[in-house]
């Protein structure tokens, strides 16, 4: 290793005296371990929150509800208030000038704009 890399100690040493089990012992090299962790969704599922008393706060029950206020619609491109909606691209736009841009956008960009507010067409 280069001297400056060693000096900065940016690489985590493999042996640390304060550990009871070293990382290389726990996760031996060359052994495929498969996936040994769960995503948050799977964690939540395995918690069986439905079995809990209803008034007990859980990770799921403290989640905020949807908003009661009417949704403010803004132009996907400029961020101004958007009274209009383009049925072809499904983008919201503020005025005729933006509309021209909207119509000249390639589909890829339209989808990226839509994806920002989670409204893109997802092909599975």
């Amino acid at each position: 290793m280069e001297p400056e890399v060693v000096e900065a100690e940016i690489v985590l040493p493999t042996y640390l005296s304060f550990k009871r089990v070293q990382t290389y012992e726990k996760y031996p090299k060359g052994q495929s371990r498969g996936r040994h962790w769960k995503h948050l969704k799977q964690i939540i599922q395995s918690e069986n929150y439905s079995n809990y008393p209803p008034d007990e706060p859980t990770y799921v029950s403290i989640e905020s509800p949807p908003s009661m206020h009417p949704c403010k619609r803004i132009c996907d491109i400029t961020g101004f208030e958007a009274p209009y909606y383009d049925p072809r691209t499904k983008l919201r736009y503020a005025n005729a000038e933006v509309f021209r841009t909207v119509r000249s956008l390639p589909n890829e960009y339209v989808q990226k704009y839509l994806a920002m507010r989670n409204a893109a067409v997802v092909l599975k």
């Binding site: 985590l12 640390l16 005296s17 304060f18 009871r20 990382t23 996760y27 040994h36 962790w37 948050l40």
Partner: peptide
């Protein structure tokens, strides 16, 4: 994942680094 720790292998590296930089040098 969101605000919940789910990958404890990565968490272990982070704790290693944290304790190491705190100067820990005992057996535990």
């Amino acid at each position: 994942d969101s605000n919940v720790v789910y990958q404890f292998e990565i968490m272990e590296y982070i704790l290693d680094f944290g304790f190491d930089r705190m100067g820990a040098n005992g057996l535990e």
